[in-house]
């Protein structure tokens, strides 16, 4: 059996094709093979959420999916979401509420928050906390993060 597998996928709208070791996970693939280092690596066992990536429209743990499994799929990272402007209001809220702090968890938080707001236009603070409970902020700035997500949801609904 070949030591490498071919991965052909769309990453942030661009077609990419690379030969990778089967053991390469999706977050290492985007970071090292594609040099998209916005997705962070924390615990490497699915607990911290720093490596959150969108695969086929759904957020996943980048450390718990193999790059090989993205073959034929659609991958979106924080770079793609940032450049598209899709989450610019969410990013503004994070800045306004000082929800970034050290920034290590921020890309994962933004992707998770974006996914929440797609599913639920008006989440309560409890629902926000539940949804982001799989993303660790070790600066423990959760209050500001919840504020920022709530603020974005209110603005999107036409409030202030």
């Amino acid at each position: 059996m070949s030591k490498f597998v071919q991965v052909t996928t769309t990453v942030n709208g661009e077609n990419v094709s690379r030969s990778v070791e089967p053991r390469t996970n999706l977050v290492d693939f985007v970071r090292y093979d594609l040099e998209l280092t916005g997705s962070h690596v924390g615990c490497e066992h699915g607990v911290c959420g720093a490596c959150t990536i969108r695969l086929n429209g759904e957020i996943v743990r980048g450390c718990l999916v193999l790059a090989a499994q993205a073959d034929g799929g659609v991958v979106e990272t924080i770079e793609g979401l940032s450049e598209s402007g899709k989450i610019s209001d969410l990013q503004d809220s994070f800045l306004t509420r000082n929800a970034g702090q050290c920034g290590s968890c921020t890309p994962g938080m933004l992707l998770t928050a974006d996914s929440l707001l797609e599913e639920n236009k008006a989440p309560t603070r409890t629902e926000i906390r539940e949804y982001i409970s799989g993303n660790y902020c070790r600066c423990t700035g959760f209050e500001a993060i919840v504020d920022a997500i709530e603020m974005t949801s209110k603005k999107r609904r036409g409030g202030s």
């Binding site: 059996m1 066992h45 699915g46 450390c63 718990l64 193999l66 090989a68």
Partner: peptide, 20 residues
């Protein structure tokens, strides 16, 4: 893979073939 991948990442298991 949500339980298998952590065990592989931590090298608690090291199979020689993954059947996806």
């Amino acid at each position: 893979g949500q339980s298998l991948m952590p065990t592989l990442n931590m090298r608690l298991s090291a199979p020689d073939l993954l059947v996806d």
